[in-house]
Amino acid sequence: MSARNHTRVQADEFDPSAELQGFGRGRKNVGAVVSFTGVVRDDDGSLDRMEIEHYPGMTQKAVGAIVDKAITRWDLAQCLVIHRYGPMRPGDQIMMVATAAKHRVAAFEAAEYLMDYLKSRAPFWKKEFTKTGKTAWVEAKVNDEDALSRWEENGLA
């Protein structure tokens, strides 16, 4: 893994503002820092909690490899990904991505690329538990795969 790669897979909560303290700082070649935080959503008030299962062993490697690709492709000075597993409540933070690059286009594109790949190529599975005791595995969407082909068409994925 690249030294610019900061990947963490954890059950614990995290504080995005604390994570961004000093991120991309102290480097003369950084002109743009972009960050994204994913939050547990509850569209109709029926969700009690979500549980994210993962594949210990593979997860860290798969996420690390996706981050390394983004670092190379957009020449990122630094890249941070934190992805949680285990039980989470609506409003809880699931994951965050931060990119530091020379220019804004690279920082934004790299963050979007990371989100698209983490969604369908990192071994996480979400299960929803409703307040009435129903459970359902979240299904992958067809447009999740379309989102990946967008990066492949450029011939660089």
Partner: peptide, 10 residues
């Protein structure tokens, strides 16, 4: 060997 449904991370 691991078998699983399509992943739903992010």
């Amino acid at each position: 060997v691991a078998f699983f449904p399509p992943m739903t991370g992010g």
